[in-house]
Amino acid sequence: MREFLGQWMPPDYSAHGWQVDQIIYITHWLMFVLFAFWSLFFLYTLVRFRASRNPRASYHGMQSHWSTWGEAGVAVVEIVLLVGFSIPAWYRWSNIQKRKEANPFEVRVVAEQFAWNVHYPGPDGKFGRTLVNLVTSTNPLGLDMSDPAAKDDVAALNQLHLPVNREALIHVTSKDVIHSFKLPLMRVEQDAIPGADVPIHFTPIRTTNGERWEIACAQLCGLGHYRMRGQLFVDTQQDLEKWLASQPKVTQ
C-alpha cells in the first residue's frame, strides 16, 4: 500500500509525518480488504444468481451469519486504528504544553488575504507586541516599535525559514478571514483563525536544497485563495541565522 499510495503522495520530510502516512496506509488496507472482498462477492452473486441462471429465488437467502463476524471484525479494526494509532498520534501532535521545554524555534504566522506574514522574534527570542491599529502596508503585522522586544524582530512575507532537525513551534493566526496553513511536505495543516492563536509544532528533517516547498492555503478565503502561496525553506541553523541577520528590521 505504501508503494501504491506513495506514488501520489508528496515526500515527507518531517519527523512525525510517518505516523500520518502509516495511518493512511493502514486505513487503506482495511478499505482495500473490504472493497476487494465485497466486490468479489458482488460479482459472484451477479453471475451466479441472475434470473436466467436461477429462475426462482430462495425465500430465505443466505442462512449463515458469518457477516455478523465480518461486521464485528470491521468494528474491531476501526477500534484498533483509533485507539492504537490515531488517538496517540494526535495526542503527541496536539499536546503543545510540553514543547516549550524542547527549546523549539518559535515563529508566528499571520495570514491575510492573500499572503502569509511570518514574524520572527529575533535574537532575544521574544515577539514584539502587535496592535491592530498600527497595521500599515509597510508594517503588515502592526508591530509596536515602542516595545523593546520588537526592536530585533524580523517580518517576512511568504517566506518561512526554519532550522533543520530542530523543533519548530509555529503560532498560526489570521488578520481577516479563515485561512488554512498547509505544508504538504511536512504533513502539517492548521486553520488560521482570526481572534485565535493556535500553536503547532513539527520537526523538519531535511534541508530544502533549492527545491520548492510550498506553503499552501487550504481554506477558501476569497478570490485570491488559489494564489495564496508561500515558500518553506529549511536551512541549517547557521544558514538560518545568517539569513535572519541579513533581513531588514521593521521600522516605522
Binding site: F42, T45, N54, R56, G61, S67
Partner: peptide, 13 residues
C-alpha cells in the same frame, strides 16, 4: 450495505 449485498445471495436477479 452488508445486508443489501447479502440480499443478492440466492436471488433471481
Amino acid at each position: 450495505l452488508t445486508a443489501l449485498f447479502i440480499s443478492l445471495y440466492g436471488a433471481s436477479i
